[in-house]
């Protein structure tokens, strides 16, 4: 009988594969800039139109920093829900997606590449509002607080990443686009990302306390300005993270079962 081909068979190392998926995922996103441009510019525009003209806020270093922190949370939240929610749903609809499953890589390099890509865009989304704050307001905080705030805004983005993934794995791309919008804006308003929660009526303030957007806002504003961190913030963030980690796992398995059983 024919001799067997005995080439050494080894797969490509995981970190390299993850970087390959990151690189091409990023390229795909950057080639269709409209998909991210709106999301990226909205927080800076909000700052420009609603905060900069109010001298009472823009002229006060801490108040301006707090307003910027709120919009930074919005930037990360909307980027996460949109890029993961719509991105995953669109990818699932592409015939290229099952093809990638036939390549010698498990599902994780793609997932890690996806998260790195989303993180990159979230970080990029922080640049415009911070630039507006630095150039056009009196916002001023020590550099170590600034770094801590950026770190925390990214960490506080995790539940939104998971909300995005849940939407992406559960829904068609059309439904995901609609649902992502419906989720992001009410969460932002009720979470005090556009108007500070101090202006809320009592019932809304109470409701707001249980939202991940409010908890993320409180955490980042506290880091940026030194304001007291409400005791509810961390447990609320953690609760949403655990809940949506479970939901993401459920949605992912359900999708796998449907398409790749």
């Amino acid at each position: 009988m024919t001799t067997t081909l005995t080439r050494p068979v080894s797969t490509v190392a995981f970190p390299r594969l993850a970087l390959v998926h990151y690189r091409y995922g990023f390229l795909e996103t950057v080639r269709v800039p409209m998909a991210v441009l709106g999301t990226m510019l909205f927080p800076a525009l909000a700052l420009l139109f609603f905060v900069v003209p109010q001298r009472a806020v823009a002229g006060d270093p801490l108040a301006a920093a707090a307003a910027t922190a709120q919009l930074a949370v919005f930037a990360v939240m909307s980027t996460s829900v949109f890029t993961y929610g719509i991105g995953v749903a669109e990818d699932r609809a592409q015939p290229f997606d099952p093809y990638l499953r036939t390549l010698p890589a498990g599902p994780w390099p793609r997932m890690v590449g996806r998260v790195l890509n989303g993180t990159t865009w979230s970080l990029l989304g922080l640049v415009p509002p911070i630039l507006v704050a630095v150039l056009l307001t009196e916002a001023s905080i020590p550099f170590d607080r600034f770094l801590l705030s950026v770190l925390l805004v990214m960490l506080a983005g995790i539940p939104f990443l998971l909300i995005g993934l849940t939407i992406g794995y559960l829904m068609s791309s059309k439904a995901a686009t609609a649902v992502a919008q419906v989720v992001v804006f009410p969460l932002a308003f009720a979470g005090g990302l556009f108007l500070p929660p101090e202006t809320f009526p009592g019932w809304l303030d109470t409701l707001s306390t249980f939202l991940p957007s409010r908890a993320a806002r409180d955490l980042v504003v506290s880091a940026a300005t030194g304001a007291d961190l409400p005791a509810t913030a961390l447990p609320v963030l953690l609760g949403w993270t655990v809940a949506f980690a479970l939901l993401t796992a459920y949605a992912y398995r359900r999708d796998e079962g449907r398409r790749f059983h």
Partner: peptide, 18 residues
């Protein structure tokens, strides 16, 4: 298993390319 597919080549179904 991913490792088994390192000796396998296939085409995207339909002409679905990014």
């Amino acid at each position: 298993t991913a490792a088994a597919r390192v000796r396998l080549g296939s085409t995207p179904q339909e002409t679905g390319l990014p």
